[in-house]
Computed example of a mutant assay.
Amino acid sequence: MFTGIIETLGEVTALKKENENLHIGIRSDISQELKIDQSVAHNGVCLTVVDIRDDVYTVTAIQETLDKSSLGDLEVGDFVNLERAMVLGARLDGHMVQGHVDQTATCVGLEEKQGSWFFTFEYDPSQNNITIEKGSITVDGVSLTVVDSRKNRFSVAIIPYTYDHTRFHSYKMGSRVNLEFDVIGKYVARLLEAKN
């Protein structure tokens, strides 16, 4: 489990395809604190550390993960949002995040407003994922509050700290991001679907 509070950014140093798997090398300032078999969220995707060499560690994404997330879009030199799994008994500053991406979305709007930024994302509604006004959403692993919720799009307001310390400062129109919808909302949607 994660909280959606990003610890640091990591730089992609290597991408190696092996059959349907993608091995991703990441340089970060937390690499030497990690251990083999540890779970780390990468742009909201929970992946297992399989190798550590100095300040670079490696994780492996299987084909299903590549199909459901934007990790297959990564290039060497890109940065990813990183969060280690939460510690039981620690403060929950964001919301309960599983590290299981539901689908991707595309940035269709961005606007700076008096020191903050508003980003609008559009997603495929056919998967029956929902957002609600003032509900929680995870965008590339960042726990955020939904504003302007609609059937297939929503907006989020980003403060300067989040803008500077996550991938949000690199987003532009057309950027693809990973979404993890609020787990309670997913259960409600499934219950409603079962009743119909």
Rank of each mutant, 00 (worst) to 15 (best):
I6L: 07
L9P: 09
G10T: 11
V12A: 12
T13G: 10
K17H: 10
N19P: 05
N21S: 07
L22P: 00
G25W: 06
R27W: 02
Q32T: 13
E33K: 15
L34S: 11
I36F: 12
D37T: 15
N43H: 11
N43Y: 11
G44V: 08
V50Y: 06
V50M: 07
V50L: 06
R53F: 11
D54N: 14
V56F: 05
Y57F: 15
Y57W: 13
Y57C: 09
Q63K: 13
E64T: 00
L66A: 00
S70Y: 06
G72Q: 07
D73W: 04
E75Y: 04
G77R: 11
N81S: 06
E83V: 02
A85Y: 01
A90K: 08
L92R: 02
M96H: 10
Q98F: 06
Q103I: 01
Q103N: 00
Q103L: 01
T104G: 00
V108M: 02
G109W: 03
L110K: 08
S116A: 14
F119A: 03
F119S: 02
P125L: 03
P125E: 06
S126A: 14
N128R: 13
N128W: 05
N128Y: 08
I132V: 15
I132P: 09
E133A: 08
E133D: 12
S136I: 03
T138W: 03
V139M: 02
V142P: 08
D148W: 02
N152F: 06
I158W: 07
P160H: 13
Y161D: 14
T162D: 11
Y163C: 04
H165S: 13
Y171Q: 07
K172A: 11
M173F: 10
L179D: 02
F181H: 01
I184H: 04
G185T: 04
G185H: 07
G185I: 03
K186E: 04
Y187R: 10
Y187L: 09
V188T: 09
V188P: 09
A189K: 11
R190N: 14
L191T: 11
L192M: 15
E193Y: 12
K195R: 14
K195F: 10
